[in-house]
Design a protein around this nucleic acid. Structure first.
Lengths: 129, 129
DNA sequence: CGCCGTTGATTACACCTGTAGTCACATCGA
DNA sequence: TCGATGTGACTACAGGTGTAATCAACGGCG
């Protein structure tokens, strides 16, 4: 049937992403448990979290497993996948797909700590070895 | 004077960003000239470009200087500023503000070309010297 | 057995975005 | 002078997003 690969997962909004982070850090969780994690910080109500969970289910970013009369939610896409996609999108949009200029930019903005530099140096060595 | 610093420039959408790129690459331009640059590629009509220009003016991302009976548009925010903001936002959202993990990610995704690596190596040396 | 709270579903609603049509007006060319 | 044309302003409208209220049903406590 027509279910041909929907390879590219649907776009996840900012607020939805917040919910994803919770589920990535721990899952499965109920709506109430997710709310425990974010409602205070973001000043959201439980209703808001439910809406976001519903939308994420629609977008097939998370799964809702029935557990008694409620659902347990858990991520369907890996964090690495999402993060990779977002990073690539940014590099694409702003730096013509080249990562070096991004790096240069972060460097200029002093967004790179000593630790970052050290870590990157190590990574570089590994990659060039 | 209530005009207390609106430090953070208003959010620029994807379509709007496209227009910004044109103006960053050359300005000032009229609406029609901007359209010449993007309408074909994006399949936009002139009307669309005008709307986007209007919204960008509202957001104070560009200025509209009267020139006879039309306007000449030019960026008010520097590309570097925008790019820096977006980059920082991403690093913030996805990597807890640390740039190294982003770099690691790009590396893993093989989003880094040999050239990128070489360039970054040079940048690194400069920063550590 | 009946009520209350919990839970997902449905609905709401304002604002943003993408995309464009329409309109009134100023001009330039004939 | 008069009409074609270029121009910005205003309007439009569907779909996404942020934020939430309301509703109906189920299940446990008294």
């Amino acid at each position: 049937m027509a279910e041909s690969a929907d390879n590219r997962p649907e776009r996840i909004s900012d607020a939805e992403h917040e919910v994803m982070e919770v589920l990535w850090s721990k899952s499965p969780l109920t709506a109430a448990e997710v709310c425990d994690e974010v409602c205070a910080q973001r000043g959201w109500s439980l209703a808001t979290v439910k809406t976001l969970l519903g939308r994420l289910v629609q977008k097939q970013a998370i799964a809702a497993a029935p557990d008694g009369r409620r659902y347990l939610y858990m991520p369907l896409i890996a964090r690495a996948e999402y993060v990779g996609g977002e990073s690539r999108r940014l590099v694409e949009r702003l730096f013509g797909g080249r990562a070096a200029p991004l790096f240069a930019h972060l460097a200029e903005q002093e967004a790179l700590t000593e630790d970052d530099l050290a870590e990157i140096e190590v990574l570089l060595k590994e990659l060039r070895q």
